[in-house]
Each structure stands twice: as C-alpha cells, then as structure tokens.
Design a protein around this nucleic acid. Structure first.
Lengths: 129, 129
DNA sequence: GACCCGAAGTATCTTATGGAAACCAAGTTA
DNA sequence: TAACTTGGTTTCCATAAGATACTTCGGGTC
C-alpha cells in the first residue's frame, strides 16, 4: 500500500503523472526496444511497425525531457540521430519491471474478475467509458 | 529493464493498459484512501474534495471490474454502499508502492532534467502536447 | 405538499490523445 | 534537373478523458 504518512496528495499526483506518461500507448514499447541498446530513429520506427513518425518523435521528446533517454545527433547527410537510455532511464525501469512481472503473473486473475463482472452486469453501458 | 525474452509485445501492451488505468487522474488517490480501510461513496467524495460524482463512480466501477475493489450495497434508505480493496487490489499496490518510492526518490532528478531540457530548447512548442 | 439525502445516471462542453497524410531541408545520386 | 534519403514538422481529423450541471429514485423530515 502507498503509505499515507510519507506520500501526501501532491506526491500522489506526481506518481500519477509519471504513470500516465509511462502508461501511454508507446513509451513502454520504445523503452523496451532501447533496452537492447542505442538505436536510430528509423530503426525504432521499423521495429515498432505501426507507430507514426509524429508519435515516435513526441514520445522520444517526452522521454528526453524527463531525462530517461539521451539524443545524440551526428550532423551528416542524411542526418543520423541515435537514442539511448540514460542511467536514470535504466534505473526507472527496474520498478517498472517489477510491475511487469506482477501483471504477467496476475493477468488471468484480472481477466477472470472482468468476465465475472460482465456476467453480473449484462448492460454494456457500464463498461463503456 | 523489461526482459524481452519473457515479455512480448502483447504483454507489453497489457502492462501499458494497466499503467494507463492506474495512471489516470483519480485511481491512485482513491486507492490510497481505501488503503486505510473500507469507505462509503460519500466519504470518498468528501476526502477527495474536488472529484465529481461521475468520475468517482466511473473510477470505482473500473476498479471493481478489474477485481481491485469490492462494492458492498446495504439496502437501507438512504442506500449505503461501501467500497474496500480486495486481496488482489492490495497485492497490486505493493509494486505500485515500489514505484511510488522511486518517484519520491528521483523527483528532483526528473525536475532537473526538465529544467535543463527547457533551457536547451527555449521554444515552448516542444513542450506542448 | 415541498424539500432533502445518498448514490447514482444523462447531457453537453472542453481538452487531451493518437492517427493519417502532406510538407520540409540538405545533400546525394541518377 | 528530378528523385530519394533521414529525421523530422504541420495540418487536419477522430476518439477518449474529464468537468459541469441537471435529472432520477425512494424514502425520510419540515
């Protein structure tokens, strides 16, 4: 449980903010890709397949701004830009990995809870939104 | 780091989905409140202060559907509805607490990275969106 | 009868998120 | 001169999230 004594409402919102960022559509996938080592923009795009350039740029910018990813430009033509995890980025994704393990272990329980709920509440409007 | 061998793209999206849910505006605050013990709807609303009834209902429903929160109705008038964390809910929020600790410990580093980035990139458009 | 309570549901609005496609700039190749 | 490359940016659009205000319901009080 999140201890109420050390974590006030402000800290809670801070954590939510970080979770929202990490929980967006692409961040985890990008970080997982960069976990294998530094990669170039186009290599990431190829690897992620369905991501648009805009979203890849935006997600990388956010990661860079928060200090999780380092961006290194080599001024040649055509330009080369390499992205790599910073030490802070690698450090963050240890607790994230713990959460990943948990999700992996309990995915079935969540699915079961959802099916049970949906069976109890046949009205699909409850599930929407 | 998230190990690529045990966690494929599908699992990664599963984790992202969970993180998005937990990372939304109210979930963490509600769970923190329920961590102190079961509470009624109106008590939660009072405690959270600025939340609307609609968002409180919706967030609680989502938590209930995923099996993290239990909803107990006492059919008196006016109706009494009590919300409590399930064992699954309490279990989930151990890895979440680890992440909270991390955030608490590294908030300064993230702030510093942001300020450094903003100083390097004076164009505010990069930060928007 | 008029009004209030708890726990919602509805309706409408604004904002945020994400996607598709076009455009751009520098230099290189054909 | 035209086309192509990388690493973007810009514009437009659809959907989702969240805020605000109003309605509902049954049973209680004034």
């Amino acid at each position: 449980m999140i201890p109420t004594d050390t974590h006030d409402t402000g800290t809670c919102q801070r954590i939510s903010e970080l979770l929202s960022r990490i929980g967006d559509k692409w961040t985890l996938l990008i970080v997982r890709a960069l976990g294998q080592g530094p990669k170039r923009f186009s290599a990431l795009k190829r690897e992620l397949g369905s991501i648009s350039q805009k979203m890849l740029t935006r997600t990388l910018r956010n990661l860079e701004r928060d200090g999780f990813v380092d961006r290194k430009v080599t001024p040649v033509t055509p330009p080369q830009v390499e992205y790599a995890l910073t030490p802070l980025g690698m450090d963050l994704f240890r607790p994230i990995a713990a959460l990943a393990e948990w999700t992996f272990a309990h995915a079935d329980a969540i699915d079961a809870a959802r099916h049970a709920y949906d069976a109890r509440h046949p009205d699909p409007d409850h599930r929407a939104a």
